[in-house]
Amino acid sequence: MTRVSFDVNGETHQLELDTRTTLLDALREHLHLTGTKKGCDHGQCGACTVIVDGRRINSCLTLAVMHHGDEITTIEGLGTPDGLHPLQAAFVEHDGYQCGYCTPGQICSAVGVLAEVKAGIPSHVTADLNAPLRLTNAELRERMSGNICRCGAYSNIAEAISEVAGRSA
């Protein structure tokens, strides 16, 4: 057992955990924040995506004890039922889901994508590494490739993110 302390959605938590506990399991099983989903548990599906110190990561492929002092944001910290995050509202508006299981990961990942584009981080499909970025549909699809939607709501997800990206650009 190892002690670890980190902030989740603005609240500090102190936990004593088996070293094997992933960040995903700490969030779900110990803090009961079940918005973050366990899909493949191997970093392939993106359902467990959360934002740590401003960056999107797969919470299933990192140990909770490795996050001492970190600031973590989960889907519960982005918005509330009465005050949706713009991406949450856009997913509702554009029907960016069917079963909804991948949605928290998709939205946290999209928050990360928008921050990465704002920071000028290029992608595999960026034509010119040294020119200003534009979030085209091709850019968006490449950047979201770490999030699988088994229902196949991709085109609506892309529309939801594009709308918010256009608004904040």
Partner: peptide, 28 residues
């Protein structure tokens, strides 16, 4: 991959990094 000097002078390295994994994995 995003470092300005790497993008300018070692583009093959930026390109290779961006061709690998997913955004979430590259962040870690």
């Amino acid at each position: 991959a995003a470092d300005r000097r790497v993008r300018r002078d070692y583009a093959v390295l930026s390109r290779a990094l961006l061709a690998g994994a997913s955004g979430q994995l590259r962040n870690k």
